[in-house]
């Protein structure tokens, strides 16, 4: 498994933001999947906070992360893949089961009630 670098941890490249939906289209504590520049991005909302991660479950290869349950572990937030229940940190994308595995994460911008996701230009 290749280590996926977390976008947030790297010096930011130039980002192009795409509007994906209205915040109200994501029910609280749930996720949706957005197509951004051909990539599948799982977008979750917890209260007023929005998180964006890769939608592909690295353990099964299926594009299902957006359909996972959200929750917390200790002080941190997580999402759990619906297929084999692997957990990932909602902010860093890091796997809670296998340290060398991570979901990519994407920057999120909230503007005028809309959700925008950034991808490197």
């Amino acid at each position: 498994m290749t280590q996926l670098q977390n976008t947030y941890a790297r010096p930011r490249p130039q980002l192009a933001f795409t509007r994906v939906c209205a915040l109200t289209e994501i029910p609280d504590q749930l996720g949706v999947c957005a197509l951004v520049g051909g990539q599948q991005v799982a977008v979750f909302r917890l209260g007023a906070q929005v998180y964006a991660l890769g939608n592909r479950d690295p353990f099964t290869g299926a594009n299902v992360i957006s359909r996972g349950l959200t929750g917390s572990y200790g002080e941190r937030l997580k999402v759990v893949s619906p297929l084999l229940k692997h957990g990932f940190d909602l902010e860093t994308g890091l796997s809670l089961d296998k340290p060398e595995v991570a979901l990519p994460t994407y920057p999120v911008r909230l503007e005028g009630g809309d959700v925008w996701i950034g991808l490197p230009d």
Binding site: R19, E25, V32, C33, Q40, G61, N63
Partner: peptide, 17 residues
């Protein structure tokens, strides 16, 4: 019914299936 979509911003199916 809005929850039953592969993508929130596109009406295409998941191409990886």
């Amino acid at each position: 019914l809005a929850r039953f979509r592969s993508f929130v911003n596109a009406d295409t199916p998941d191409p990886d299936i």
